[in-house]
Every structure is written in C-alpha cells, then in structure tokens.
Design a protein around this nucleic acid. Structure first.
Lengths: 342, 342
DNA sequence: CAGTGTCACGAAAACGATTTCGTGTTAATA
DNA sequence: TATTAACACGAAATCGTTTTCGTGACACTG
C-alpha cells in the first residue's frame, strides 16, 4: 500500500526544509535551478499531489459547491444538475449533492452540514415542504454568513440572492393561447397544490389566457393533484366526468396519464382533444402520441446557476453592496403529436 | 455579515485557552461544571459549529464519498445514486458526484481530483470508453493508496474490490425463456456494442436460452446499436426487414422505439409481437402499451454499494488481508402489457 | 510539615500546506 | 577592506481542530 506522500516526506528525504519543497514545486525563483530540479523530479517520481483538505483549510476555499434538490430521480432536476456539474467541473469545482426529498428538515440538516466549511456556495431548489411552511431561516443564516446562494426553479421572494427561473406564467399563457388558436373552448388544467410557486405561476398564466380570450373560467376544469400523486383513479374520474377539448398539465406525467385515459375512452389525439405538458423530459419524447410540451431548459438553467454562483464566489466584492440578479429563461413550446400544429 | 465563529474566538472572549474550549464543548470532565456552562452557553449563543475542513485535516477522514458515474441523466444511474445518497446521508456522509460522460479522460481527471484527500472512498460505474480501452490504472492507483472502492453495474474483473451487479445473464435468459414459453420462435435481440460488459452478459443469456430450447440462432436477428443511439432509421430498417415475433432489448429506450415501429407496421402488441426491455424506468411504466421489463433494482444496488463502502471505510483492518465481495442482485421481471402473461 | 493526590486548566504538537520574514553566504562595489 | 546587494534557503506563523502531557493550586494524609 503506497500511502500518499507529503511535503514533509520530500523535505526529510532530500534534506531540505518544507518551505523549500513547497516553493520548488511552485517553481518559485527563490530556489536555485539545481534544487528545484532535484525536488521536482523526486516529487514526480513519487507522484506527489498536494492534499486538497490542507489547501482548503489554508485558503478558506474548498472548490466545492453544494447542490440541494428535492429529488434526483426527476428528469428536470437531473438535467439542471448536469448543467451545474458540467460548468462547475470545467471551472475546477466539485459538486456535493444532497437530496431533501421534499422534506424541510432534511433540507435544513443538509444545509447545516455543508455550511460548516465544506462548500463555497449553494445552488438549490426548495423542497415542497419548505415552500408550504414558508420558513426560510436556514437560507437566511447561510446568506448572512456570506455564503453565496443561487436559487432555481422553486424559489422564494423572501430571500435576496441570485435566482434562475423560467417564465412559467408566460409559458402557460402561450400554451393555452395555442390551444385556443386551434379552436379549443374547454381547456382543462391539471396541476399540483398551490404552494409550489411554479404551479401557481402556471395557473396564473392559464387563467390570464382564458380571460384575455373571453373564455369562461370553469373551476370544474381545474384539477389539483398532490405532488407526485401515484394513483390514477382521481384523474380518471375527473377526466371522464368533464367535457373538455384540451388539457394543460404542469408536468409530463400527469399529461401522459391523461392521454392514456383519453385513448381508453376512444378519443383521438389530437383531433378530439389536445394535450400540452410542462417539462420536456424523456416521457414527452417517447410517449405515443409524442407529447407537445414546454421545455424548461434544465441544463441551461443549471449552467447559468453555476455561472452566477462561481461569479459570486470568486469575485465577492467584500463590502461593496452586493447585487443580485434574477435570470428568467424563456420556455419554449416543443410541438409534437398531441397537438394540432401548423 | 456574521462570520463563522471559531474556538479561538470563544477562547479569547472568555479568557480561557483553546484547549479548554474544545474540551468544554465535548463535555469533557476534565473541565469544571462552571466553566463548561459558561463556554457552552456562549457557543450556543453564537451558534458555534466546528469547521469540517479542520476536522477532516485532523482526522484524515472527510466523511465524503465520491461517486463517479457515466451519466446522470439516465434513470438507472439516477436511482442507484439515490440509494447511495440516502444510505450515506443516514450515516453522516456527503456525496460528491462526478460525471464521466462516458469519457475515459474525464473519469481519470475526476478520480485524481477527488483522490487527493477530498473523499474517503469511491463508488463508481465505468465509462464506456474505459471499458473499451480496458485501461484501469487509475482504479489501481486509488486502491493501492488504500482508498476503498466499490464498483457497480459496469465493472471489471481486472480490479479486486467490492462489486455490486445484477445477474444480467440469467435475467436475459429468463426473459427469453418467458418469450419462448408463449410460443415465440424468432426472438430478436437489440443491444449495444459488446464492450459494455453488461450488454455482453445479456447477450450470453440470450444465446444460451435459445440454445437450451433448441431454437436456431439467427445473427440476422441481433442488432447492435451504438450506445445512446439517437436516430431511428437503423432500427426501423432492421425491424421492417426481418421476420420476428418477439424482441429483447438491453434498455428501455430501444424497446419503446421498436414498439413504435411495430405499431406503425400494424402489428398488435403483444398478440403479434412481444417486447421485453432491460431497465425498469419511467418509460416502461408510462409507455403505451406499458413495457414488460427487467428491473435492475438500482436503488437497492446503490444502498448496498454504499453499505459496502462505508463498511470498508470505517473498519479498515489495516494490515489484515482485505476481503472483497461481489454482491449479485437478482433482477426481476415486471410483467406489463407488452407480453402475454398468465 | 513533608509528601501525595486530585482538580482544572494551559502549552504545544499534530494534520498538510502556504507565505512572510530572516539570515548566512557569496560576489560586487566603493 | 568595509559595505552592500543578490542569492538560496530555513524558521515560524497560519488555517481550525483535537489530544497528550504538563503543572500550579489546593486539600488531605501520616
């Protein structure tokens, strides 16, 4: 077992001081050519690599960033994560991921664990429970300590920090408008409970679009399902007991499930009924019919979040009044077989 | 901005030594009741939390584990990751994820970055390129340094370490056997190129099952697609130019795509043709028809990998001959609508 | 009163690196 | 010859902990 070698070992072995070794390895011109070569070749021979932890302690910089997301087995978060990881890695940062599992407590615990020196900054999306409780003290504590924080997708107005979102309201508006454009009059909305701010925004867009186009708002056409609702009975019942000619869903799973109900009832998609879902994930691409959906550009979002964070980490203007941005990405509608396109 | 407080601050403030503070906070009975209370309440007031990095340096233990996977936007890896994260978190470990992106170089770079003190052990699944090149020196270096390593799914025989896999060969065998059981005689295999050891094992199971049941092996019925092949032309052509009555695919995407081809050709699933895919992901559950698939129990796999790793980390019997296990999980067949079940 | 023991705390080393400041040696200059 | 400057290196502090080993003060014992 070849244990890692340290500066001290090299120093002892070559009979010089630790400082000399350190300087020699950094090619300092304080050290003579001879000595540098001796030390460098010795170091190369024994494959010396500086210990990250020691460097972190010295520099008070870990080159780690903490990512806290509600769920990793969720295509959207996964793509965001990929964006973060790629960008961060390119900049020499490692990424520590913690999954809050939609739980407030886990979110808090994870943040505290990481905030004690393990990371240089956070990127996170709030857990459902946190949004429900409206308690953001853990975020506040972190920012007050001067640890940079970037929120994405599931954000809150209560905390001032950098944020990245998509234009959820406008995207929903645009989707509904498209449906109206093909003559649809009874458009349903299938969403989650309201405490998720993204769902709320999307609902706003939905209502706004109906209003702007003089369509009646029928609350009977709005179904709220618990987040990650597994059973199909409720949606099936909702579906078969209402008259509708189009459906907007806040995620693709709801949409796929409803399309199945529609097909079962003998409806033709998109002739009799059209579908649009949020989150352009794999399901949308591989369902039959393929689902028209609203791309949230997760990877892009992750890249931007990481960019903003690293910017803050590396150029913290200490006392200069911090400036925080909220970057709004434009969602795009990907037209597939579940709608009538032109 | 409230900066983090350290032992030194507390010591100065309360006019005691750093050692006293440290001991008091650990409730050492070397320190008088009075002093302990003074120190503890002061620490609580200022929300003192020990600095992880300093502790890591001291203990030579980071409580971080490194996970290197080829791709995070891939349902199987994501579920494994979740298993790892959950278990590790429960044991007080954080998880640093690096994505190799199927690239040998990235895998090496990431390992080296993490191996210099950032983590206590690795869990990884080899990149396609690494398997293709058959170069495992980076793994060897790490294990030689005494850093515990657990490989899962995409493993290699070249390295002795703990491993977790599923019984790929047997699972494929079982799937083919099931298809034969419903009278199928021309069973196709859609797989990736051979260097992925899992694909190879699955192919072995396929051939074995055919042989054991006296069915002809027709190489025309075996299609090898590049990993993550995006285009559909090849599979469509393969599909329409061969006579087959069942298909086994090494992943669900291939399966879903082929089911679409079949439906397009007017075939009925499962009456005219049956489908089974590996990887029981979301696609299998939500496709129409729902895909019968082989569950790889990713989360379980992750849990076990993490368990094995942490075991090794915490109970390294220094000089005692290390023992390495290979845990084989049993894949299970999830019967859905794409096959005829009884 | 000398010797012993307990109590409560501090000094210092250690983890592995970086960096500032000295300092002894040599050569160049006045 | 005395002064200075450049050179090449080392000592020590520092980052924030933990832990071992002293040690001064006091009480108790014979």
């Amino acid at each position: 077992m070849k244990k890692k070698i340290t500066l001290k070992h090299i120093a002892r072995e070559l009979d010089v001081s630790i400082s000399t070794v350190s300087k020699a390895l950094k090619n300092s011109d304080e050290i003579s050519r001879d000595t540098k070569e001796r030390i460098q070749s010795f170091a190369r021979l024994y494959n010396y690599k500086p210990n990250n932890i020691a460097i972190s302690l010295k520099n008070k910089r870990t080159k780690n960033i903490g990512v806290i997301i509600p769920d990793i087995v969720h295509h959207f978060f996964t793509t965001v994560f990929r964006g973060i990881e790629k960008y961060a890695n390119g900049k020499g940062y490692n990424v520590i991921v913690c999954v809050s599992d939609e739980s407030f407590d886990k979110e808090v615990i994870n943040m505290e664990m990481l905030a004690n020196g393990s990371i240089d900054g956070f990127i996170m999306s709030l857990s459902a429970e946190t949004q429900l409780r409206n308690d953001f003290n853990h975020l506040r504590e972190v920012t007050e300590q001067g640890i940079p924080l970037v929120l994405f997708d599931r954000i809150t107005e209560e905390i001032t920090c950098d944020k990245v979102v998509i234009n959820d309201k406008e995207a929903a508006y645009m989707a509904v408008k498209k449906l109206i454009g093909t003559g649809r009059k009874r458009i349903a909305l299938i969403t989650t409970e309201n405490y998720l701010n993204v769902s709320e925004k999307r609902a706003e867009g939905y209502y706004q679009a109906l209003k702007d186009h003089q369509l009646d708002i029928d609350e009977e056409l709005v179904l709220k399902l618990p987040y990650q609702y597994e059973e199909e009975v409720v949606s099936e019942k909702f579906f078969s007991s209402r008259q509708m000619d189009a459906v907007l869903c806040v995620n693709e799973i709801f949409a796929i499930r409803c399309m199945r109900h529609a097909l079962k009832m003998g409806l033709r998609i998109p002739e009799d009924i059209e579908f649009i879902g949020f989150t352009d994930g794999i399901l949308s691409r591989f369902s039959s019919p393929r689902l028209t959906s609203i791309a949230q550009h997760g990877e892009r979002m992750g890249t931007i979040a990481a960019e903003m964070l690293i910017q803050k980490i590396e150029f913290a203007d200490d006392e200069g009044e911090e400036e925080y941005r909220t970057e709004v990405l434009e969602a795009t509608l990907i037209e597939r077989e579940s709608t009538i396109n032109n």
